[in-house]
């Protein structure tokens, strides 16, 4: 496991909103299934004293921390207030903050992440589906039915594409240690490098699938940083330059970050790159044959 396990107590900000309420239900259904603690408290300013699926709601993170043992937070609050929520959790001493919220202005994200870094905590996202360690912990919105416990780590900038790949792996009988959606924005907290470092220290993880897309060069930086066997897939080979492909971070700018050159650089480092998601399981099998 990385980032947390069954014993992790989770706090949800934006608990009384439509998204927050819905996903507290799903996260706690998963926690019950695996015997974990799950979401123990919610926060929505002005809604303190309420309950959501039996989870007590507080006005502030500090108040929730006074009553509960909490080490991780999931944020569902709207974009205009999400950076503030990250800083509130960091100040209260929460170690792992998962920001699901999409459309946060980049300058707000830069500030919130710099602030969280100063407080010594890590941010996953924003604009991400969160993470899931099968059999242990779900923080975020990933559909748990697709997952299988095992020893392949998955890191991705996407949501549904991650589910597609996890589905392919599970159908092929390849289980996952932890699946992390790091987010589709240009500025994100945990990057491929950070998650790979955690996987490197995780005895359960034997290989990693790295799902990237056009924009920036975080995939290459990640691949360079690790000794773990990795397989990659890069989405957006057909993306035209200077067009945002759904994710704020998925854009080829100034001739940089296009899929072809990304794939070429990864291959040069010796990383096998799948040309479509359905090829990933076979490449993972080959890796296990060659490395384990």
């Amino acid at each position: 496991m990385i980032y947390g396990d069954k014993k992790t107590g989770v706090l949800v900000q934006g608990a009384t909103g439509k998204q927050g309420e819905f996903h507290i239900g799903l996260m706690n259904a998963y926690a019950q299934q695996v015997g974990g603690r799950g979401v123990v408290a919610g926060v929505t300013p002005g809604k303190g004293g309420k309950e959501v699926h039996g989870v007590p709601v507080y006005n502030t993170v500090k108040e929730a921390m006074r009553d509960h043992d909490i080490s991780a937070g999931v944020i569902f609050v709207p974009a205009a207030a999400a950076a503030d929520s990250i800083m509130e959790e960091a100040t209260a001493g929460i170690q792992t903050i998962v920001a699901i919220t999409e459309h946060i202005p980049v300058h707000d994200t830069m500030k919130a992440i710099a602030y969280a870094e100063m407080e010594g905590c890590c941010v996953i996202g924003p604009n991400c589906p969160g993470l899931l360690s099968p059999g242990e912990l779900k923080m975020g919105i990933m559909p748990s039915g697709l997952f299988l416990p095992g020893n392949v780590g998955v890191i991705s900038r996407s949501g549904t594409l991650t589910y597609e790949v996890v589905d392919e792996l599970t159908r092929a009988g390849i289980g996952q240690s932890t699946v992390v959606g790091i987010g589709g924005d240009p500025v994100i907290g945990q990057t491929f490098v950070d998650v790979l470092e955690r996987f490197g220290n995780d005895p359960q993880t034997k290989a990693v699938v790295l799902i990237g897309e056009v924009g920036g060069n975080l995939e290459e930086e990640g691949a360079k940083s690790t000794d773990l066997p990795i397989v990659s897939y890069i989405a957006g080979i057909s993306a035209p330059p200077d067009k945002r492909m759904g994710h704020a971070g998925a854009i080829v700018e100034g001739g940089e970050g296009d899929a072809r050159s990304k794939i070429a650089r990864l291959k040069k480092m010796g990383v096998p790159v799948a040309s479509r998601p359905s090829e990933i399981p076979q490449i993972v099998r080959n890796l296990f044959r060659d490395h384990c």
């Binding site: 900038r157 594409l161 589709g184 057909s238 993306a239």
Partner: peptide, 24 residues
């Protein structure tokens, strides 16, 4: 999120990554 391209096959997906992957 919508981007116009020049081909003949319309693509609708959910999630940026999956939709991009469908194009590819």
């Amino acid at each position: 999120s919508y981007v116009e391209l020049t081909g003949t096959i319309g693509v609708i997906g959910n999630g940026a990554g999956l939709t991009m992957s469908t194009l590819d």
